[in-house]
Design a protein around this nucleic acid. Structure first.
Length: 423
RNA sequence: GGAGAGAUGGCUGAGUGGUCGAAAGCACAUCUUUGCUAAAGAUGCGUAGCCUUAACAGCUACCGAGGGUUCGAAUCCCUCUCUCUCCGCCA
């Protein structure tokens, strides 16, 4: 959520920066400002009337104590009360409307975020490693894992539906080894505290991180309980401190959480046609940071480095790209995507998206921190995948496939997998 | 699921219709004093909004949440949420 004061003071520069995202946001800004004017005038009027009522009511109390008749003055205050109700309804309605509008305006891209219209204009930041060479034609992960009995795509469809999958045997064990490897790396080497959150959350949490109200159709919902299945651990973990004022000496807060993630992927093309690449349910280890505004830019680099370290340790070729203003997410100010090379696909797959949200999420969830001077300020929130599991699985299987159809387990993972190869 | 108790400021805890945004204590901050590593005193010490300002100040709202009664609600009524205790059930 943007600060209404920023909008009041610099509406034109806000519109300009939002325009870099593409899409039509200027009229939303105008609407908010119009409502804001109405809201404030109603609010001022209401408060003046409330002040009148308080003062006169106090006089009634005193008069009654002195045994005086107060019926006339009571009638007067009754009239004020009616006015307060009327004006109050207007003020409250404007308030709700203003908040709704603010919640539907995306975040401002950071000054450092490259300006561009679409994914084609995302600059490549760096590349690590090289494409592995094969003495044979590398196979697709569905073929390799299928042959080894690691994944049963048909069973997933049978018990749930398309874009759900059943891991079996070495496949399930590889998935579990990866989870443990990632959690151990981030908690023991990178200094994150491990969190194991609920997978169902209240709607307020999704409002806090920005999925609601705009993207409700992408999230699974249980209407009986009004609970949502999390699309990412970012939601419960960032919301751990919703409505809180944390002390400055607690910052930065660093959390790592493994959870399954659930996404409806409504409107996504190609679902279920490419093995593990786009699923309704997938595992992910998520990194979340809450920082001071002064350190968030540097922390985004650190966070991205932690995610990259995963791929480096596993010996997987990857590149880092920065998303341009036309491609960054709704709440993000600046985003790096990490894409791992999958030889069987002949393509890079996005396994991590690392973003700084500035104060956008924190303002939505009323998260604040008390600084050294005792002032309440709004912290910055960041998150990044460290990393998504299904696509990491794909890259790993396709990169380490052998001519005989077996899969070599990279050195760093052997302690967790407890074997050197599959097949 | 059943029965009971409760929810007040960072914490403890008073307050059952009229200067209560809320006593007192603790904690915390600043200052003073004595002095020595502890104590005494003074002052300050919630959040948000509105209106203003150079700044201070002022006004309004908030005593779990929402609604109601009333000229006036922390206080009375209703609904909900949560916590605790006991019983039942369950992993």
């Amino acid at each position: 959520m943007l600060d209404i004061r920023l909008l009041r003071e610099n509406p034109d520069s806000i519109k300009q920066r939002l325009a870099n995202r593409g899409g039509e946001h200027a009229s939303l800004v105008d609407q908010v400002l119009e409502i804001d004017t109405q809201r404030r005038s109603a609010e001022t009027e209401r408060q003046k009337l409330q002040g009148d009522r308080n003062r006169i009511s106090k006089e009634i109390g005193i008069a009654k104590k002195n045994g005086q008749d107060t019926s006339a003055i009571e009638a007067e205050v009754r009239g004020i009360g009616t006015r307060i109700d009327e004006i109050g309804r207007d003020a409250d309605a404007s308030d709700v409307k203003q908040r709704d509008l603010l919640l539907s305006i995306p975040n401002l891209p950071h000054e450092a975020c490259p300006v561009g219209h679409s994914a084609e204009e995302n600059p490549e930041v760096r590349v690590w490693g090289t494409k592995p060479a094969f003495a044979f034609e590398p196979k697709d992960h569905t073929a390799i894992a299928g042959a080894l009995g690691m994944i049963d795509f048909e069973a997933g469809v049978k018990i749930t539906g398309s874009a759900f999958v059943v891991y079996k045997g070495a496949g399930a064990r590889l998935e579990r080894a990866l989870i443990n490897f990632l959690l151990d790396l981030h908690t023991m080497q990178h200094g994150y505290q491990e969190i194991s959150p609920p997978l169902l959350v209240k709607p307020e949490c999704l409002v806090g991180t920005g999925q609601l109200p705009k993207f409700g159709d992408q999230v699974y919902h249980s209407p009986e309980d009004d609970l949502y299945l999390i699309p990412t651990a970012e939601v419960p973990v960032t919301n751990l401190h919703r409505e809180e004022i944390v002390s400055h000496d607690k910052l930065p807060i660093n959390y790592a959480a493994y959870t399954p993630c659930f996404r409806r992927e409504a409107g996504s093309a190609g679902l279920g046609t490419r093995g593990l690449i786009r699923m309704h349910q997938f595992d992910k280890v998520e990194l979340v940071k809450i920082t001071t505004p002064e350190t968030s830019v540097a922390e985004l680099e650190t966070l991205t480095g932690h995610a990259e370290n995963v791929l480096q340790l596993l010996g997987l070729h990857y590149r880092v790209i920065e998303l341009c203003t036309g491609d960054i997410g709704f709440g993000s100010t600046k985003t790096y995507d990490i894409e791992v090379w999958a030889p069987g696909q002949g393509a890079f797959l996005e396994v991590s998206s690392c973003s700084s949200f500035g104060d956008y999420q924190a303002r939505r969830m009323n998260l604040r921190f008390k600084d050294e001077n005792g002032k309440n300020r709004i912290p910055h929130t960041l998150n990044g995948s460290g990393t998504a599991l299904a696509r990491l699985f794909v890259a790993l299987v396709e990169t380490y496939q052998q001519a005989d159809g077996s899969i070599l387990i990279p050195e760093a993972l052997r302690g967790h997998f407890r074997a050197e190869k599959i097949g």
